[in-house]
Write a protein that binds this DNA or RNA. Structure first.
Length: 117
DNA sequence: GAAATGACCACGA
DNA sequence: GTCGTGGCCATTT
């Protein structure tokens, strides 16, 4: 379970009011080109978990809607709006403004040693 | 152990 | 700008 735990730990680092893309998370987890794994990992996350899963969106700046999520996708939009993140008319987020800018402490690879459980 | 599953991304047309 | 295609691989059944 190490790979998923790494992903979860990175997601926990996303500050309130910011968002990150799947590819970005994959990059930080030293999983360049394996962005799908991030999505798969988050699919397993429980809504009651301490992981801010709502702050992870796709590369288009949109929430990934899917019927398999029991409406969690719509909940995600609500949670993000409560954090002050705005959606445009197309339901997209302005990544230029809200995209998380990871600190140098967690540049790829480095985060593994500091967050490994 | 094999097959199915799954919130994606980069690229070309 | 949209749309289709290929590649990616850990976890679960």
């Amino acid at each position: 379970m190490s790979t998923y735990n790494t992903i979860y730990n990175i997601v926990r680092q996303i500050p309130r009011g910011k968002v990150a893309t799947y590819g970005q998370i994959a990059d930080l987890a030293n999983l360049y080109g394996k962005a799908r794994l991030v999505g798969y990992a988050l699919y397993r996350v429980d809504k009651n978990s301490d992981i801010p899963w709502q702050r992870v969106i796709n590369a288009k700046g949109e929430i990934s809607y899917s019927p398999l999520r029991h409406g969690a996708d719509y909940l995600q939009k609500t949670l993000l709006e409560q954090e002050g993140i705005k959606f445009n008319s197309a339901g997209k987020i302005n990544l230029k403004e809200y995209l998380w800018h990871p600190s140098r402490d967690m540049l790829h690879g480095t985060i593994l040693s500091s967050l490994d459980l």
